[in-house]
Design a protein around this nucleic acid. Structure first.
Lengths: 227, 227
DNA sequence: TTCATAGTTCGACCGTAACCGAAGTATTGA
DNA sequence: TCAATACTTCGGTTACGGTCGAACTATGAA
């Protein structure tokens, strides 16, 4: 009757509150166990198990067994992107969660999206890289330029190792709070990891917020100036 | 319990098959009456009316009264974008509709997305404009350059009139079949309208497919060469 | 004014799916 | 080998929401 792929199945999957909680909890890129996700979603273990097998069947999350634990993570960055897009819609309509805590402000400044940096800091980094021709946009794609490679290496990132992986080096991801692109892909991940390792920032336990250290404030501003 | 906006409500709204059919039917940018949408969705008029008021409450569609008819259209391009993104996910997982007709091939070549051109032709047009610096990307935004303005005017488009409207002149939209950007915004709409007016292409009645005329084939290739 | 068409609201019915607890399976550790 | 932990499966209950038809409202045409 209709044209194009059927979106109702996937949307219905995301549409259940418990499953939406599970997916949201996985947005920070970590892999969590079934029990942890049950806790996050506020349902019993057996219920969560059922949800997780549905999400797995639909390839929205992927399981990884480790001993008697079973860890789940988002299937790929595209899933994360769709979730962010939905958050953007939801935010517009004022459907924000009841509990609007102090963390929300910090989430706007800097947070983890899947496995890379998002929020104002994430967007600033991206725009700074573009403005200096270290990154170049090509349609939806974005590529690291020659000078960009030098910059990344100088930043302490092993590009050769990254390029051996299966995931794309550079990807854009639409930021739901800033409504602009930020950097995803294995490079985006590595940048965040590196900045954490350097003590510029650390993740807030129990939320997706990223907290800047005083040292990090300065270093970040120097490394990624607004132009 | 969770961070960020609540996505389950909106996703659940899209997750009902009847409502998903309604939204998909509106993806071509036209405004349809409640009766037409009931037909599209395969439900009774009273049922469709209920769905439409829910979609309206959530600001996914907007009503416009005209006499004793009530026309519905998608609320904005952001909604269309999210629907396209969901289609991208659904397509990947092979959840394509059972009825994979001959139109599907044509849909990949050229189709209407909201109100602008999508598919391979849409992407080709966008990339050609970018490559010739008629359009310039800036983060998620895209702007018409000076030479781009001349080009658009020469193409028969009244930019001054477009800029009086409330909708942004240039926007990017992610193509679910090509996975690349194509041009949206009021300029994207005007380009499609102009090409239809020139007899380059015409919409297929009853689907979102866009059919190229022989004359259009040549003219399009000349106007938007692959580079 | 009267009739026809478009859409909304209401009431009743029904099916699906979320939920829990209990029993069953697998893996680790003692 | 036995016990504890992590997860899955099953059965039964429940509730939410989609569905239709009928009655009602509003607009336009004759």
């Amino acid at each position: 009757m209709k044209e194009g792929p059927d979106i109702s199945q996937i949307a219905a999957l995301i549409g259940d509150p418990a499953r939406a909680n599970i997916l949201t909890a996985l947005m920070d890129g970590r892999a969590l166990t079934a029990s942890e996700l049950a806790e996050e979603a506020g349902v019993g273990l057996s219920t969560a198990s059922g949800h997780l097998s549905k999400l797995t069947d639909a390839d929205l999350v992927s399981p990884r067994k480790s001993g008697r634990h079973k860890y789940f993570h988002l299937a790929d960055a595209e899933v994360a992107g769709v979730l962010e897009a939905l958050m953007g819609l939801a935010a517009r309509r004022g459907a924000t969660r009841v509990r609007t805590g102090p963390k929300d402000a910090q989430m706007q400044v800097a947070r983890v999206c899947y496995n890379h940096l998002a929020g104002r800091m994430g967007v600033q980094m991206y725009r700074s890289l573009i403005a200096r021709d270290l990154l170049a946009e090509d349609g939806e794609d974005v590529i690291l330029t020659g000078t960009g490679r030098d910059f990344a290496s100088g930043f302490g990132i092993d590009l050769v190792a990254l390029e051996k992986g299966r995931t794309l080096l550079c990807r854009t991801c639409l930021d739901w709070s800033e409504r602009r692109n930020h950097l995803a892909g294995s490079l985006g991940r590595a940048m965040l990891t590196r900045m954490e390792g350097q003590g510029w920032m650390r993740r807030d336990a129990g939320s997706r917020a990223v907290l800047m250290t005083p040292k990090g404030q300065q270093a970040f501003a120097a490394a990624f100036p607004r132009l």
